[in-house]
Every structure is written in C-alpha cells, then in structure tokens.
Amino acid sequence: MKIAYSPCPNDTFVFHAWAHGLIPDAPKLEVTYADIDVTNNLATKPNDLDILKISYAALPWVLSEYALLPCGGALGRGCGPLVLTKDEIKGASVLSGRKVAVPSERSTAYLLFRLWAAQNIPGGVGEIIVMPFHEIMPAVRDGIIDAGLVIHEARFTYQQYNLNLLQDLGSWWEEDTNLPIPLGAIIARRSLDLSAITKWIRSSVEYAWANPKDSQEYILCHAQEMSKDVAQAHINLYVNEFTKNLGEEGYEAIFSLLSRAADEGLVPKFDLNALRL
C-alpha cells in the first residue's frame, strides 16, 4: 500500500509502527516523504498513492476521489500557524501591500491567514510567495520577504532567527470560534477498505504512545537537523486525542473552517456530508 506523508515528527511518530511492519495484519507500506505543498498538489492529480497526508484546506478539491479518515491527522489547540516579521511591529495593517511567504496555497495555514487578513489588513497584502516551510524563516531574517507564515516546529524555533511574532493565527481562530484548529488530514481512496485502514492507523498511534522510544531513531532521521527536544515538543503539540479520533468536536471544527471558507469564496462549495465516512 502506497502512502505519502511529511518527514515531520508528528507524522513519523504516528506512522512508525505501520511503516515498520509492527501492526498485525496491516499490509506493507511504501512510503513517500513529501512537503505538505507537494502532497496537497499530488492529491489533485493522477497518482498511484493510496493514502496521503494533506491540509484540511485542500479537502474540497479531492473528496470525490478520497475520503477523510477520522484519525492520524493533526488537529488541536495552541498549535496554529504564526505570522512572523523581521522587525518588531504592531498591528496587522503594516502588511498592507507587502510580500508574504506561505507554505502552500492550499494549506490550512494560508486559509486561516486569508480569513484573518480579510478582517485585519485593509486592501490586503501584496505578493504571496509559496516556499517550502523550512525556507521561510531564513527568508524573513534575510529581508527577502516582509513576513512569513510558518508552521510545524517553527513555533519553537523562530526566536533563533531573531524574528518577531506578529500574529498567532491559532489563537485568533480559537478566540473567534472556541474550536480547535484543523491542520493536517489523512485521506484514503474511497475504493479501499476504509474501516481497515482506519483500524491500522489507530493501532499505529496506540503503539507509538505505548512505545515512544521505539520511534525515536526513525523520527530524528527524518527531522531535518531538528534537536531531540524540539522533535518531542512537536510531537507533544500535534499528536493528541484528535489524532486517534476526530470526534464530534473535531468534525465541528472542520465543518466550521471549510464552510466559512466556502462562504468567503476561498474554497469550492461542496457537500459537507462528504467529510464523514
């Protein structure tokens, strides 16, 4: 079975057991490691992948072929994307007409940014540039761009680049909706046995929690020079009860994000019932 997910610690932690043949009766996995912008685009084109990790924001484009699985993804509180600048500035209006880098045009981070910017930046920002997420902070530091929208472990490391936090979009979303933030989704082809895949992913999550040391070497091997402490902080933040089961609160957060985005014309309108198995 072919799967694509990122080399980030939360994904390698979740899928370690399955990828290493530790889940009874689960088929062997052939893993492709790819940045979220790559998987968001892969899911919309002909490919031979059975399972992918994508942004929740990309779901409206892929639901005819793929189903959202109720486990394995990233959704939570206090884990949202950040808007960073080189200089310490106050007020979102300073970004009016400026150059901003984002990790993917169909990322949840960018969707949250657009919803926030519509309320807070008169006239909107200037140029939007898509960059791999690990290149964004150096570009802000070096003055190549005016601001950067960052995700993942950047929450723990942006101070190392002498950058300043302009806005925590997760905090903005939680205050606005009182709901967790839907970030990364796991999808699988509708033609497959979705209940079995869900079971195998949940078993992989449970194995990871029960045997956290087993996955350390695998995680750090793919963590792009991340320290062990930062990798663990990343896992602690992004792997939580929603990773095992979205539940009603998780689905409500997803419905809220995507219905609001559809109403604003930021994603195609679609049948929200297609989000459930």
Results as ranks from 00 to 15, higher is better:
residue 108 T to W: 00
residue 188 A to F: 05
residue 27 P to V: 11
residue 129 I to K: 09
residue 62 V to M: 12
residue 152 H to L: 12
residue 117 A to M: 13
residue 240 N to K: 08
residue 14 V to L: 03
residue 129 I to L: 14
residue 121 I to S: 05
residue 273 N to M: 08
residue 34 A to E: 10
residue 87 D to F: 11
residue 230 V to S: 06
residue 277 L to G: 02
residue 6 S to G: 15
residue 227 S to E: 07
residue 11 D to S: 14
residue 8 C to F: 10
residue 20 H to K: 15
residue 88 E to L: 13
residue 118 A to V: 02
residue 209 W to C: 05
residue 21 G to H: 07
residue 258 L to I: 04
residue 210 A to Y: 00
residue 210 A to G: 01
residue 267 V to M: 05
residue 130 V to E: 15
residue 189 R to M: 05
residue 127 E to Q: 13
residue 206 E to M: 08
residue 2 K to C: 00
residue 135 E to Y: 09
residue 112 L to K: 01
residue 245 N to L: 09
residue 249 E to K: 13
residue 26 A to D: 04
residue 12 T to I: 03
residue 149 L to S: 02
residue 256 S to N: 13
residue 132 P to E: 12
residue 214 D to N: 08
residue 146 D to Q: 07
residue 260 R to S: 12
residue 109 A to R: 01
residue 267 V to F: 02
residue 31 V to S: 05
residue 191 S to K: 14
residue 64 S to Q: 14
residue 177 T to F: 07
residue 68 L to H: 04
residue 91 G to K: 06
residue 197 I to V: 14
residue 135 E to D: 14
residue 118 A to N: 08
residue 14 V to H: 00
residue 270 F to S: 03
residue 274 A to F: 00
residue 214 D to M: 07
residue 268 P to H: 05
residue 235 I to R: 02
residue 27 P to G: 10
residue 210 A to Q: 14
residue 118 A to H: 09
residue 45 K to G: 00
residue 221 C to Q: 15
residue 46 P to L: 07
residue 212 P to R: 12
residue 43 A to F: 03
residue 206 E to Q: 14
residue 42 L to D: 06
residue 151 I to C: 08
residue 157 T to G: 00
residue 184 G to F: 02
residue 222 H to A: 09
residue 256 S to C: 15
residue 269 K to C: 02
residue 262 A to Q: 07
residue 152 H to C: 14
residue 33 Y to I: 08
residue 137 M to E: 11
residue 59 L to S: 06
residue 251 Y to C: 10
residue 120 N to A: 06
residue 264 E to A: 15
residue 86 K to I: 04
residue 52 L to M: 10
residue 159 Q to D: 13
residue 201 I to H: 00
residue 157 T to N: 10
residue 41 N to R: 13
residue 234 H to Q: 10
residue 119 Q to T: 07
residue 37 D to L: 12
residue 273 N to Q: 11
residue 206 E to W: 00
residue 161 Y to T: 06
residue 39 T to S: 15
residue 269 K to N: 12
residue 208 A to W: 01
residue 127 E to I: 11
residue 139 A to M: 06
residue 45 K to P: 00
residue 19 A to I: 00
residue 20 H to S: 14
residue 185 A to G: 01
residue 271 D to W: 00
residue 192 L to F: 07
residue 161 Y to R: 04
residue 159 Q to V: 12
residue 172 W to V: 09
residue 80 G to S: 06
residue 221 C to G: 10
residue 45 K to H: 14
residue 8 C to A: 12
residue 57 A to D: 00
residue 209 W to F: 14
residue 24 P to C: 10
residue 233 A to D: 13
residue 79 C to D: 01
